[in-house]
């Protein structure tokens, strides 16, 4: 049995419950046990630009919670993955570890940190997921969006290929959908500059939305709540700023995978997506 501590972060448990719900239900289908991390907080990433060391301490405290229950961590947000992974590596340095101990924390058991989707790819694997697909999403064109901190920086992860990423493409393809290959696959969603310059952030999000439209995709597959904020929540703003129409659904990857595993729309929280995927669902029932 694959068993992990699940780290939710700030956004997922209150703003992206459909992501959490679909991930938990997909886990159940694939025989993955997700254990709660009681007392887990923000990952620390929002503090990094202000004071990297404090951010690392906040991250390391979360890791210590998983360490006490001796479970590797899976996360649903790309930036949480980066922040916690960084802290996990720093915990092995004497300098940081002593600062960590000074605030009364302990790290009794070495644990790994990975994105939930990476765990699916590495620990369950494409073949086994393929065997579990009951209702292939044949006929759907899906645009995978990786987001930055899923595989970058490579020094931290050593996973996938940072210039030509492929793991999410494979995970989309195994659902039976067509994974759309496109230029600028690794482009940032713009989320990190939203608080600094909204117009610029929307410009960045619009770039990929316009590529999605050109390719006639049925949905974008996201694996990060912040990327979804940019592509789904701010899609209207992009439409206004660039005088165009998109109406492109943005689904979390576990929602798509869940549908292919035979889960119904409720079990993957489809009604909570802001942009309705009715026409996509119609294609599936045809």
């Amino acid at each position: 049995m694959n068993k992990y501590a699940i780290f939710l972060g700030c956004t997922v448990p209150v703003r992206a419950q459909h992501y959490e719900l679909s991930a938990r239900n997909v886990a159940k289908e694939l025989g993955i046990d997700l254990v709660e991390m009681s007392g887990a907080s923000c990952c620390g990433f929002p503090l990094k630009a202000v004071d990297a060391e404090t951010a690392l301490l906040v991250a390391a405290r979360n890791i210590s919670l998983a360490s006490k229950i001796k479970l590797d961590v899976v996360t649903l947000c790309n930036s949480c993955t980066a922040m916690l992974s960084d802290a996990q590596i720093q915990l092995n340095t004497e300098e940081f570890h002593s600062k960590f101990k000074k605030v009364g924390l302990s790290y009794p058991h070495e644990v790994r940190v990975r994105h939930f989707v990476r765990m699916l790819y590495e620990d369950i694997g494409i073949d086994k997921i393929g065997e579990a697909v009951k209702k292939p999403l044949n006929g759907l064109k899906i645009m995978p969006h990786y987001g930055c901190h899923y595989m970058r920086p490579s020094q931290l992860y050593g996973f996938d290929n940072t210039e030509t990423p492929h793991t999410l493409d494979e995970l989309v393809s195994v659902t039976g959908a067509e994974s759309v290959n496109y230029a600028d696959k690794k482009m940032c969603c713009g989320g990190s500059v939203l608080g600094v310059d909204e117009e610029l952030a929307i410009k960045m999000a619009n770039h990929k939305l316009s590529i999605a439209k050109e390719n006639g995709v049925d949905a974008i597959a996201s694996i990060c709540p912040f990327c979804t904020v940019m592509y789904e929540d701010n899609q209207r703003k992009a439409e206004a700023q660039f005088e165009t129409q998109y109406g492109i659904p943005v689904l979390y990857y576990p929602q798509l995978l869940g549908l292919s595993l035979g889960l119904d729309a409720n079990a993957v929280g489809l009604k909570f997506n802001r942009i309705k995927s009715d026409s996509m669902m119609e294609k599936l029932t045809r």
């Binding site: 990094k48 630009a49 930055c148 970058r152 490579s154 940032c188 713009g190 990190s192 600094v196």
Partner: peptide, 14 residues
């Protein structure tokens, strides 16, 4: 103000 425009995406680092 542009110092704060860095999205910390690590495209440069790579």
């Amino acid at each position: 103000p542009f110092l704060w425009f860095c999205a910390h995406c690590h495209a440069c680092t790579e």
